[in-house]
Each structure stands twice: as structure tokens, then as C-alpha cells.
């Protein structure tokens, strides 16, 4: 006999999809990635956002950021190259304009923050920690499109000492679940992840975009206004998958995996490699309701395979 799947919208699901990331409990492991859904306002017209696990906000900085000169996005083969430059209204705009809306959403909000120097990270963490619906903080240490004063290296996430210092300081600042977001563009991502774990984070998010560029052969100039940017989309999936695989075996805290997840199959690969939750990014641009399709696909896969608890899938791929 074929088991009937419960109707949409019912709270009872055939399998256990709940995952726990630090203190953060998610109804399911599908999360909207930072910078790809703003603060949820626009995408809500296309997507029943409240059925997802969580939303990560656009990265918030202390002061308003105008962003980089256009063109800011350009299509790459199987991917998207962007250099937005963390354009956002700053912490005040977040607290007064975005929080009231986010409070109305019945899903956990993960606030993404980034700063130039340690002091900015502290101030931002203090502010967002006061917001009830903000259940976790994703610390963006890996945006390839801004310059940080906190390190001599291009990215904070490339500087082990900077990662340790920022994470350990924020650990003292906030009670909320702390999730540094790492860059794949490092010699050994395991080392950085271990440093973050040692400094007291609850989980790690990976990967951010890959530093990349494209050139227009007619004008003989870089295609992006800011010359270089970050590459995302299906072209980076196998690269990101390896990062998740490596980090999962190196640390004990949960890994939130992302990088070119376009459909449920991609998401399941990430889960099998050790992601306790997955973030959907570029796919939101291609299809704003992609994340829900991914969630439904994961449920179908589990039903087909007879898997009752999603945690049985996390890291289930064996060498």
C-alpha cells in the first residue's frame, strides 16, 4: 500500500526533519542564504517563506554601505559572478526598518553581520542579540567584495588569528548561536574551521563565493565594475562539496553547507557529506520558490529511502 503524504500546511510530517544548530532549533534544514533573499520582504510574494527552516539576512554592517559600482552581477558559465559590495542600510536601518517585518515572520532569523574591525563586530553582535526573532548570528568573514582593516590578507576568513580573535570575542558578547561563515579560498579550510571551533562557535557556514573574474573581449575590460567578484551557482557545487566533506570530518560542531545548491539532489549531496542544514542562494534568483522545491524533494527522497530522521543522513556518505 502506498502511504499518503499529509496535505501541505499540516504540521505533521512523515519524517523527522528537525535539526539543531547550537541552540537554534530548525523545523527543517532548508535555509535562505545571505544576500539572496534580502530581509524576506520581496521573495515572500513568490514563496511561502514560513515553511522553510530559517532565513539568513543580507549582511548588516555598522554604517550604511552604498555598494560597488555597476555592473555588479554578470552571468558566468553555470554560475553567477557578483560584486554587490555588502550594500545595506546599516544597523539602524536593520533595527528600525527590517526588524518589525522580520518579527512578523514565523521562522527563525539568522542575522548576518560583518565589520572592518573587531569593535564593529562587537557592536553589531550586541545590537542584533537584542532582537527576539534573531536566533543566531552568522559572522560573515568571507565576503570577497569588501576590504577589511582587521587583517593584512584579502579576507578575514583567510587569517586564522583574525578568525580566532573575532569568534572568541563574540562568544563573550552574545548568548545567541554563533556561526562564522568561511571562505573556500584558503590553503586548508579544516584549519580555519578548527580555529573557529576552538574559539567557541556553535557551527560553521561554508562556503562563501569563490573570488573570480570575467573579461569582455570586445571592450577588453573586466565585466564587473569592481573588476573582481565572487562566483556562485552550480559551477561551484563540487568544489563546495569537498569543503563540507573535509570540514565535517575535522570538527565536532555542525556544518551548514552551501554552494550551488539548485535542487533537492544537490542539497542531499551536501547533507550526505556532513551538512546538518543547507543554504539555498543563487537558486533563489533563478526561481524564487526553489527552496521549497528542495525541501519537498528531500522529504520525497527520505520517504523513498525509508529514512525516518534526517540526522541519519547527515554525513552518511562513506569513503
Amino acid at each position: 500500500m502506498v502511504k499518503k503524504r499529509p496535505r501541505r500546511g499540516t504540521t505533521r510530517v512523515p519524517q523527522k526533519l528537525k535539526v539543531k544548530i547550537g541552540k537554534l532549533e530548525l523545523e527543517n534544514p532548508v535555509i535562505l542564504a545571505s544576500g539572496t533573499a534580502g530581509f524576506g520582504r520581496e521573495i515572500r510574494e513568490f514563496l511561502d517563506i514560513e515553511r522553510l527552516g530559517a532565513i539568513v539576512t543580507k549582511t548588516i554592517t555598522l554604517h550604511k554601505k552604498e555598494g560597488n559600482p555597476p555592473p555588479r552581477v554578470v552571468e558566468a558559465p553555470w554560475g553567477l559572478l557578483n560584486s554587490i559590495g555588502l550594500a545595506n542600510g546599516g544597523i539602524k536601518d536593520f533595527m528600525f526598518e527590517q526588524v518589525p517585518f522580520l518579527e512578523s515572520l514565523r521562522i527563525p532569523v539568522i542575522a548576518s553581520i560583518s565589520g572592518d574591525i573587531l569593535d564593529e563586530f562587537i557592536k553589531l553582535a550586541e545590537e542584533v542579540s537584542r532582537v527576539g526573532c534573531v536566533r543566531a548570528i552568522e559572522v560573515n568573514l568571507s565576503c570577497p567584495n569588501v576590504i577589511h582593516k582587521g587583517t593584512r590578507l584579502p579576507l578575514l576568513a583567510q587569517d586564522r588569528t583574525a578568525v580566532e580573535k573575532i569568534v572568541s570575542t563574540l562568544r563573550k558578547t552574545t548568548e545567541k548561536t554563533l556561526i562564522p561563515k568561511l571562505s573556500p579560498n584558503v590553503t586548508d579550510i579544516k584549519e580555519i574551521a578548527k580555529a573557529a571551533e576552538g574559539a567557541g562557535c556553535d557551527a560553521v557556514s561554508l562556503v562563501n563565493t569563490y573570488p573570480a573574474m570575467l573579461v569582455d573581449i570586445h571592450t577588453m575590460r573586466p565585466r564587473l565594475g569592481n573588476v573582481c567578484g565572487g562566483l556562485s551557482g552550480p559551477c561551484i557545487k563540487p568544489l563546495a562539496l569537498k569543503c563540507v566533506w573535509d570540514v565535517h570530518s575535522a570538527i565536532d560542531v555542525p556544518v551548514i553547507g552551501m554552494g550551488g545548491i539548485m535542487d533537492a539532489d544537490d542539497a542531499i549531496e551536501f547533507i550526505l557529506c556532513g551538512s546538518s542544514a543547507v543554504q539555498v542562494g543563487t537558486a533563489n534568483f533563478v526561481n524564487p520558490s526553489a527552496s521549497l522545491g528542495i525541501l519537498e524533494g528531500i522529504e520525497q527522497y527520505m520517504a523513498k529511502k525509508g529514512i525516518a530522521d534526517i540526522m541519519d543522513l547527515v554525513g552518511a556518505a562513506k569513503a
Partner: peptide, 22 residues
């Protein structure tokens, strides 16, 4: 016209410089 990704105002990709900012 400008290169865009999301089409709905979330990615902030298709910025154009105006008198009141992007």
C-alpha cells in the same frame, strides 16, 4: 537596462547611480 540576477529587488545587482544614491 542593467545586468540583473533576482529581478525583484533582493540581490541589489542591477544598481544605477542616481542623485539620491544607487
Amino acid at each position: 537596462e542593467e545586468y540583473m540576477a533576482c529581478g525583484i529587488g533582493t540581490c541589489l545587482g542591477c544598481a544605477v547611480k542616481t542623485q539620491s544614491g544607487y
